[in-house]
Nucleic acid binder design. Structure first.
Lengths: 187, 187
DNA sequence: ATAATAAACGGAGCATACTCCATTTGTCAA
DNA sequence: TTGACAAATGGAGTATGCTCCGTTTATTAT
């Protein structure tokens, strides 16, 4: 990679981060970002083919941090597996709320779902979710575990989650409902 | 409502249906639709505030038919509740595949998720899904049943479903995995 | 019939995502 | 150092969703 290209990529990321701090992500246009970065829109689009992918790049750090934090927690088992799973869900929902604008942009990108699902970001998320699901899923094949992780992530996407909140459910109630749904109880 | 307005609304629906038959939904622009309908774009947008809502209006009939058909089936119990639920899922997935373009347009509309979730279309879907879930969900509150219906619909949205198919799962495998997930088994 | 008015019309115009390609620039072999 | 060229640049241009508002039209009261 040429040196100027690398510099421009950094300029873009800085400009986007700056603008996203100042105003709502959805109100920042690609032109704005190019302008603040001091480059042409063509250059912006070569680096990031669309706004969603730019947001993905910006989310990488955050997600990384979340995952690292969770992997540390996962085996600090101070409570029942059920409680542990509920806590994991709650923290994931907290994270979503904190980064809701970026995540919404990523998840609603035009045809970017195809990109998102094939990104390392998604892979890492699936791996973490599988680890969280494993203790509460006895006798389950690896492929079915993967399926459930995909479904769990799908259930908690921005739109769906926002709708549940709007219906009056709290974060905790959602976490509990989800855990009831995912945990095989035999009462 | 003024007579001319009603006529124009019908002209729009006809034009859209015609164009959507001829080429992919995503390649048909609102301008195209207005042109074929023989009206101005302003008129088009007064009738349908965006493409997603136009697609919703066009889907109404299809969904209605599906729901009517299912309500007839639901109580024709020739098999176990589990099998019945699996069949319901399979038919829902068949329906999705047949109408995938319209449904994708509806589900990925910009900020239209808020509209979609509050549409009668979604309410009907939730009601049907709740009916299908009820026999396999013992001792569950009405609100939790609603939650599960929401989640089931969320899991099977276009993006998520397309991803699973791409991963190599067949429609039947997806139906089975979902039913494993939703049914409380105590083996 | 006619006038008054609210409702609907339509297309010019705007904003924004994204593309195209003539021009510039960094890199590297000779 | 210099020449050649692949790589990168940038902004004009295109497509499309959507809005605004001056004009037209259906309806209703008189």
């Amino acid at each position: 990679m040429r040196k100027d290209a690398q510099i421009n990529q950094q300029k873009i990321l800085n400009a986007a981060a700056k603008l996203f701090k100042e105003r709502a992500v959805s109100t920042v246009s690609m032109k704005d970002i190019a302008q603040v970065a001091g480059i042409g829109t063509g250059t912006l689009y070569r680096n990031f083919p669309n706004k969603s992918e730019l947001c993905m790049a910006l989310s990488l750090d955050y997600i990384q941090q979340f995952i690292t934090g969770e992997e540390a927690q996962l085996h600090n088992s101070a409570s029942s597996v059920t409680k542990q799973f509920e806590n994991f869900l709650t923290r994931w929902l907290e994270f979503r709320e904190r980064r809701i604008q970026l995540l919404t942009e990523i998840e609603t990108g035009p045809s970017v779902m195809s990109t998102f699902y094939h990104s390392p970001l998604y892979q890492q998320l699936v791996n973490l979710t599988m680890q969280a699901l494993k203790p509460i899923s006895d006798n389950i094949s690896e492929s079915e575990l993967k399926f459930r992780a995909d479904m769990l992530i799908s259930m908690l996407k921005s739109d769906s989650y926002a709708y549940q909140r709007e219906q009056g459910l709290t974060r905790e109630q959602i976490a509990i409902n989800i855990s009831h749904l995912m945990i095989k109880r035999c009462d």
